[in-house]
């Protein structure tokens, strides 16, 4: 069994790296459903498998590396509203 470096496989479809979690997950579900339905040629099967594996990895990575984004809704003196990124322990009276 030979393996090639990561990246050699990224030749098909739109760049997976640029996909958000929801889009990647939706496509993964669609591709797996397509593969399970069968009826694809060998070439299509292999291309979709590559895509599915890459999507799966991408989703796993996004989920594993994600960090909760914490914001606070703050009333400005004039009565307007603002959303500010904060750390969870630096919230202020609002």
């Amino acid at each position: 069994m030979t393996t090639e470096p990561e990246g050699a496989s990224n030749g098909t479809g739109p760049s997976i790296e640029s996909l958000g979690f929801d889009d990647a997950f939706a496509e993964l579900r669609a591709v797996v459903a397509e593969l399970e339905a069968g009826g694809l040629s060998l070439e299509d099967t292999i291309a979709r498998t590559e895509r599915a594996v890459a999507l799966q990895r991408h989703c796993e990575r996004l989920l594993g590396e994600a960090e909760l984004r914490v914001q606070q809704l703050i009333a400005r003196p004039g009565g307007g509203l603002d959303v500010k990124d904060i750390a969870a322990d630096e919230a202020i009276e609002g």
Binding site: M1, T2, T3, E4, P5, E6, A8, S9, G11, L42, E43, I46, A47, T49, E50, V53, A54, R57
Partner: peptide, 20 residues
């Protein structure tokens, strides 16, 4: 087929989980 499959298989092999 062999040409394409070989290329595809080599490519897939680099990325696929173990059962595949």
């Amino acid at each position: 087929a062999i040409e394409r499959r070989s290329a595809a298989l080599r490519a897939a092999a680099g990325d696929a989980p173990r059962p595949i």
